[in-house]
Design a binder for these strands. Sequence first.
DNA 1: CTGAAAGCGCTAACAT
DNA 2: ATGTTAGCGCTTTCAG
Lengths: 352, 352
Amino acid sequence: MVTIKDVARHTGVTATAVSYVIRGKDGIGEETRTRVLAAIDALGYRPNLIARGLVQRRTDTLALAVSTLTNPFYPEIAEEVERVAREHGYHLLLCQTHGNAALGRLYVEGLLGRMIDGFLVMSGSLPGADLLAMVPRSLPLVLMLTDAEPPEGDVVSVGVDVRGAGELAARHLTELGHRRMAVIAHLPPHHRRLAGFREALATVGLGLPGDYVEEGDSTVQSGYRAAHRLLMSPQRPTAIFATNDLMALGAMEAALDGRLHVPRDLSIIGLDDIALGAHVRPSLTTVAMPKRALVQGAMELLLQRIKDEEVALAPRVVHPYTVIRHSTAAPSRTQRRYHPSGVERASPEGSL
Amino acid sequence: MVTIKDVARHTGVTATAVSYVIRGKDGIGEETRTRVLAAIDALGYRPNLIARGLVQRRTDTLALAVSTLTNPFYPEIAEEVERVAREHGYHLLLCQTHGNAALGRLYVEGLLGRMIDGFLVMSGSLPGADLLAMVPRSLPLVLMLTDAEPPEGDVVSVGVDVRGAGELAARHLTELGHRRMAVIAHLPPHHRRLAGFREALATVGLGLPGDYVEEGDSTVQSGYRAAHRLLMSPQRPTAIFATNDLMALGAMEAALDGRLHVPRDLSIIGLDDIALGAHVRPSLTTVAMPKRALVQGAMELLLQRIKDEEVALAPRVVHPYTVIRHSTAAPSRTQRRYHPSGVERASPEGSL
DNA sequence: CTGAAAGCGCTAACAT
DNA sequence: ATGTTAGCGCTTTCAG
């Protein structure tokens, strides 16, 4: 490995001079500058960021914890975070906790020992209490809370009003004329999304019977199965609200497989607004998480904290909005039969 | 920050002893051990991995470069890499190059200075030549090549036989009885996928007219637009091969929007096998990239190189396989009209 | 079994 | 404008 000393020796100056040249500090004569630069090039010298980090106590690296990258919602967030981070000269260390607290702790341990300059944590990846217990106050930390309440203690966070998201979903469906609606919810995490939905129904005098709430785990598969259970009930709902888009996609799949027409026979609304929702047919109506605003807000706070600026502890809150596409419509009067054994609508084996 | 010295002082031993305890080396009495451990706990000491990395010249960190995370194919790869890395006690540093060579170089610079222990590079993220020029031979590097040829020089790589993938796509379609097939290809990157397809057609006496090849850029949108152009041609193809799944999904969207039935009026086959392909309706027939085998192979080689074992330079090659779902079928004799202005099939505004 | 000393590659403060 | 010195927090000989 070629070090700063090699360059110094090769140029006939001292290591400090080289260090200055590298970082563009002035106090170095033009002539030495060029000679140093030439030597760097000739030797293929590359500063050791680890060593630099050790003394400067910064690494120009930010970390982002998400629960998983297999839910496209998180890559979309990560993409945005990375963009902003890069604009400010930071690298991004990405880690998936898979919602596993033990694993999460392990990762955090690793990150903390790595002298990251800032830490962004997405809701659902790590239990807030763990986080506060582990992360020293000296490390700038910002939480992006889509569901959890901000943990006790002085934490900087950006929250998403997911209760409001649930309300928007309910409002959209009731305005279309639905009265018999069901929910596929990832519980407990999405508790507040469900609560918002339920409350908004209540304000227009509608209830949500217990057997109209099925649980999922945020995956497409779970949405499929939950929708299947819902569609089997004698009094089938005319609309389904899934607390995330992946489950909504699964629900749509189940409905289509059961030879129902979406949205004529069943309206489906999701929550997240993942890019793919616009590209399935019918395209998915959804309540959008304000991804940009969320990331923008979080990064702003994080960068402020890194610059040691005072930051308001009162959580910023960003608000979801409805994206109406084609998976929702007014309920139809006639009830078409659900064919639970139905093969894929377009299967070569036929049917329909 | 609490350092190893603090712990040492607090326990009344020397830093060395603490260091030994931390790393579970023996040579430390049971009694001191427990006292050191207690002190670590009491002070909340956490080893500084940066400092350790500086002296040990390893950081237990691997890096993976991909072009983007917004194509779900890459998160699926990353997920797998991360799993294997973790099993072996490594962290994963993820970086997106967005296929931008300059940006890529910047990232590589950063990574190299960060003393990563190994570097995994996914095809399409960085030009091979750049990579070889920048990465010192001392850093274990493994390429996952889905499309590019291994660059000149001693590089360890795992290749995917994408030409074979193109052939499989062609074989599947011709066996179904298609004669008039078109391709949506991301060129130049997917050049070989197209070549394989074309050649396989040639072996059964079929050609691929120039205007039956439309270009895309691997995004859904580009697939949509390309399919639209293809479907407008007077002699419409009966099947489309898209060189990746995202474009295939876009093509399907276009077909459905144009009131065509997939696969009755148009068969569509993709390439990648992203998870979502199974969940759209009709589900997507595709040629699967052997993701597991690819990652497994690459990680094996990388870990060997890290352990300083000799590694064969001859590229390993893994082979794609066909996943038949419901977006392909025998061509129908009747040609249904393509309605380019068609709204979404399931749109509330009606039609169909 | 434990301690002292040297040094990883770099930067910051202080001379010169 | 350049060189000297002293670490950053840790591990690693090598003595005790």
